[in-house]
């Protein structure tokens, strides 16, 4: 579904990605972990070209990611994204947030889009918040609304860029539950996160990044129980002791 080859990326003089290769199969859940500044968020943002790759190729569903214009917009319509800071449209109600892209991009009728939006809000457990503005929702509710908004486009892949990092601890669970449900339904997912428990429980494969490189990748139990690199062992020792 996703194929990344030799992806390198610089911010000014600073190289944030060093020739990254990554494959994500249809229906696979890949969880990307690693320390801050390891390039995992940048990798995620390159997949739908919110960041442009400087070197390397990215294919989504067999198609190279277009550089810009309508072709890029079409690709993004098929790739859902959930952000750390939710990014719900502040001037629209939750329902309108979910309806906007289906009506404007896919040309779905408003009635149809509203029906589908209410179904999705029901699915993420916030049906009763549909007619409120985002600012009136808790962080966990906002993030679930953002997931519903992405799902409304019926994406082939979902990208999650640290979806729970901006949430109060007690709201992390409700968002992770929605994501686990999606994974169980067979959604192809790339999840950048610091939630090790989620990685262990839900991932088909864990990718550990450091210094802009993929240091280690593997099946979650094997990775968490017996990481094969010193760097990964060191990282896990730090995050798992707390």
């Amino acid at each position: 579904m996703i194929r990344v080859r030799g992806l390198s990326k610089w911010f000014g003089d600073h190289q944030v990605l060093h020739g990254v290769d990554l494959d994500v199969a249809r229906g696979e859940v890949v969880v990307v972990i690693g320390p801050s500044g390891s390039g995992k968020s940048t990798l995620c943002r390159c997949l739908n070209r919110l960041e442009a790759a400087d070197v390397g190729e990215i294919h989504v569903d067999g198609v190279p990611v277009p550089a810009e214009g309508r072709a890029l917009a079409r690709l993004r319509a098929d790739v859902g994204m959930v952000f750390q800071s939710f990014n719900l449209f502040q001037h629209k109600t939750v329902l309108e947030n979910v309806m906007l892209a289906p009506t404007r991009v896919r040309g779905v009728s408003r009635a149809e889009a509203a029906r589908e939006a209410r179904r999705l809000l029901e699915r993420v457990g916030i049906a009763e918040q549909a007619d409120k503005l985002p600012a009136l929702l808790s962080g966990g509710q906002q993030q679930r609304a953002a997931i519903a908004r992405a799902l409304a486009m019926r994406p082939k892949v979902m990208l999650f860029d640290e979806p729970t990092s901006a949430l109060d601890p007690e709201m992390v669970g409700e968002v992770l539950d929605v994501m686990a449900g999606l994974a169980a339904d067979g959604m192809t997912m790339v999840v950048v996160t610091h939630e090790m428990g989620f990685a262990r429980r839900v991932a088909d494969r864990v990718v550990f990044m450091d210094g802009g490189r993929i240091v280690e990748a593997g099946e979650p139990n094997a990775f968490f129980d017996a990481p094969s690199t010193d760097r990964a062992r060191d990282f896990l020792a730090k995050v798992l002791t707390h």
């Binding site: 739908n48 919110l50 214009g69 309508r70 917009a73 079409r74 690709l75 993004r76 319509a77 098929d78 790739v79 859902g80 994204m81 952000f83 800071s85 990014n87 719900l88 449209f89 502040q90 906007l100 892209a101 404007r104 991009v105 953002a146 908004r149 992405a150 486009m153």
Partner: peptide, 18 residues
């Protein structure tokens, strides 16, 4: 307006103009 607003719109497949 927060940069994330435009990013979220484009990530959904809206063109720059939309």
């Amino acid at each position: 307006i927060a940069k994330g607003q435009g990013e979220a719109a484009r990530a959904l497949g809206l063109t720059f103009g939309q």
